[in-house]
Design a protein around this nucleic acid. Structure first.
Lengths: 152, 152
DNA sequence: GTTGATGCAAAAACTTTGCATCGTG
DNA sequence: CACGATGCAAAGTTTTTGCATCAAC
């Protein structure tokens, strides 16, 4: 009988949120969320990354379920979906300790740094208000070239 | 013999930029750029949109060439590639009359509005400087829900 | 005439879906 | 034990690529 890594402790908010909508808490959903939590804030993973890491740590999960779960966790507000990659979406933990923040991406090597800026958040909020939209989130994407990729 | 719409006047900046790198000015490249110029600033087209519009106006061009041309025009700085769509990239004219601006997207219906904000640009510039990156561009993506999509 | 660009079709990359089966509640 | 979730494989999207041919320079 194969050895599986132990299931993480149940997540109260996840379980409650799921049951509220008649959904079920499954090991796969728990693992995906815990993967992000274990890695900590500020990690940007693709669906493929998530699948790889889970399979590596002996979690039985299909890529299709990873896609379904990531979409679900975004809808539920546990993850944010980032729009900064050229190829494929990336996901990060939506964490209260690490609120709305922005991304600085090197267009050559893909290195990504984060930063916070209240003025930017305020500007996004104002822009939405002024036109009568209801704000969901606003993020500043800064495209730049990092020191290692700067031509001498 | 089929009737083709007349070729637009040659674009000096496009022609010069191409020749500088040993590239060639082709009718397809000219048409793609002129499509954006004719539509004016603030239009966000997918590769498929561009292909459709060109074929509609009797321009013989393949989808593969549209993709190749869009990438080229972005590299050359004639177009910007937007990162705001869930499915597929969108492109817009990079116009001096219509400088760095930001996008407000309805996450339900996709309606997109633009706005400008100097504070945001300044924040992006500062963030890049502080970490030693060389700024390329910074845009604020505001995700929101437009009035028609707001639940009553 | 050279060599870069195009068109076509095939393939690659990414994501969704139908359906039988499994397992949570 | 009902019905939501999963796995698998197939299909759908979006984008890229190899290669023969075409055409800009």
């Amino acid at each position: 009988m194969p050895q599986f890594s132990p299931l993480p402790k149940s997540s109260q908010p996840l379980e409650k949120g799921l049951h509220k909508d008649g959904r079920r808490l499954t090991p796969q959903r728990l693992r995906v969320l815990h993967l992000f939590e274990d890695l900590g804030s500020g990690r940007h993973l693709s669906a493929e990354d998530v699948h790889h890491k889970l399979v590596e740590s002996n979690t039985k999960v299909s890529l299709a379920t990873v896609y379904r779960t990531l979409r679900l966790l975004v809808e539920m507000g546990f993850l944010h979906q980032l729009e900064l990659s050229e190829n494929g979406h990336r996901f990060e933990l939506a964490n209260d300790d690490h609120p709305d923040h922005h991304h600085l991406v090197c267009i050559r090597c893909g290195r990504t740094e984060e930063f916070e800026c209240d003025e930017v958040l305020e500007a996004g909020k104002l822009a939405a208000e002024r036109i009568g939209f209801q704000l969901v989130e606003s993020t500043l994407n800064v495209r730049a070239i990092c020191p290692s990729c700067t031509p001498k």
